[in-house]
Design a protein around this nucleic acid. Sequence first.
DNA 1: ATCTTCCATGTTATCGGTAACAGTTTATTC
DNA 2: GAATAAACTGTTACCGATAACATGGAAGAT
Lengths: 315, 315
Amino acid sequence: MTTLVDVARKANVSKMTVSRVINHPDKVTDELKELVYQAMRELDYHPNMIARALVDKSTRIIKLCILEDIDTTEPYYMNLMIGIAKTLDLHQYSLQLVTRKNFDIGNCDGYIITGMREQDVDWIKNLKKPVVLFGENRYGFDYVDTNNKAGTYILSQLALEKGYQHLIYVGIDSKESFEYSRESGYLQQVQEKRMVPELHRFDNHSHLAEEFVEQNWDKIPKNTAFICASDRLAIGIERGIVRCGGKIPDDFGVTGFDGVFLNQVASPKITTIKQSIIEMGSACGENLLDKIESNEQQGALVFEPKISFGGTLRE
Amino acid sequence: MTTLVDVARKANVSKMTVSRVINHPDKVTDELKELVYQAMRELDYHPNMIARALVDKSTRIIKLCILEDIDTTEPYYMNLMIGIAKTLDLHQYSLQLVTRKNFDIGNCDGYIITGMREQDVDWIKNLKKPVVLFGENRYGFDYVDTNNKAGTYILSQLALEKGYQHLIYVGIDSKESFEYSRESGYLQQVQEKRMVPELHRFDNHSHLAEEFVEQNWDKIPKNTAFICASDRLAIGIERGIVRCGGKIPDDFGVTGFDGVFLNQVASPKITTIKQSIIEMGSACGENLLDKIESNEQQGALVFEPKISFGGTLRE
DNA sequence: ATCTTCCATGTTATCGGTAACAGTTTATTC
DNA sequence: GAATAAACTGTTACCGATAACATGGAAGAT
């Protein structure tokens, strides 16, 4: 492996000059810089990150901590990791997957945390390394997320444009920030149109939504669209309607949120918000690395939602 | 952060002695060792992996390279990563997720490769760091996998015990080693019972298996069990049988292989081989780390298959 | 023309460990 | 009991980089 010294020898300069060419190129004359660059090229030199890390007491490790139960069937986290890993690789950082349990084993330069709930706030506040959350929050932590409010807002709008006359919101029964945002997107749309909002909340299981439809079938008028906070709930609603003999999308509309896996087994497919988790993961990594290098708050990174058209809203 | 020198000072020895207590404890007297251990405890000392890595030119990075298309809906790779990460964490290694494209960016101490095909063999042979494959192979590479042959063998056996009188094997149309093994497990069972084998092969898509059943429905006698090389194919067979009016499990049996995701949406659930990918991932990590530290071939690690009972074979 | 000041470069020490060698003590041998 | 081997422990150099300080020469000030 070629080292700084090899390059220095070849370029006839001290190794410090080489180091400077890499880290503070403005402090070296163009002439020498050219020599050094050439030597680096000829020797195919790549700085040894380990040595550098030893000096500046860094680790070049980023820990990804998934606080939710990850034993799910969703490719969500896989995509997230792929996205993060992609960025980190480019900057020669490596990704370490940890759980709350082995969180403190080994050092790192920063954290990406996802699935944060209220109870985790203090813990996160006390972390001594930069943190970026994946998922919006209202505690001032930097984060990356889809614009949740805009998502339900535009889906509600679309449903109304398609002529559905009642909009029922089916939310997740949790106090997480994204849920509030999704609710408020629906509410805003409904209020702008001077309609009466109707909200229901369940744990995020399709069968609960399905039961809800079955038990309230007689009270649900035709021409209703359900704006759901997740694809999972949307699938449940869809199944409930089908089972009760309702016609989708002619008499009833359904929209979801997520666009990851479940959408692929539903029939017809749910019209939903598509989130490019990979892309968002990349952004997450970049945000964190910027933060590490600049030591400054980077702010939130919000992705504008895109509708993924399925067959659960009229054409 | 406490260092070797801090510990040495506290224990009144040289830092070399502390280093030896950690790496070659047999070369230090018990008396000093005790002193050092105590100092380490009191100071909560943890060796700096970066410094160590600088000396022995290691990186403490393991690259996981997934050669197949990972944009699937299976949680398979997620589980694999969780398993690997678990072990690596314990040994203060970190996991880097790479694709063939960015494979060479940055150094590492070893590779875990999955999804290898014939065309990758030469490339893998030329890698200069230890490699463990996830998935069996016949090129002499160390690997971790389920005992594929035993899997179809015991499923075939089970089907026969349940009284099905014909066994049809539905395989994946590929030349990968695991497929050969699964075929041979079926074949061995069938031959032991002096039955006539019947094999069909398709790309690993459920609809192909489904079409096969529909097109050959009249030729398939009652009391047949289908031994499938994947859950995906099994689901297709199941759907085909249901669509043609066949009764599962009374008149027809179906078994799969994998037990990861698809099993959860099938109705009835497929009787299949359950693979604990997480556990296998851990084993993979351990195997590789042993190899790195001992510099010796570790051999294959084969997990014995376990049947996951669904509703596609008679009670 | 001499004294600063500034800028580009080189030298030294350091990060936290480990290997190789040196020195010291204890045990073994004849 | 002196010579020699064996067993510990300490010293020094080094891994590959960077920061802080030292040096030397050119430009600017007086």
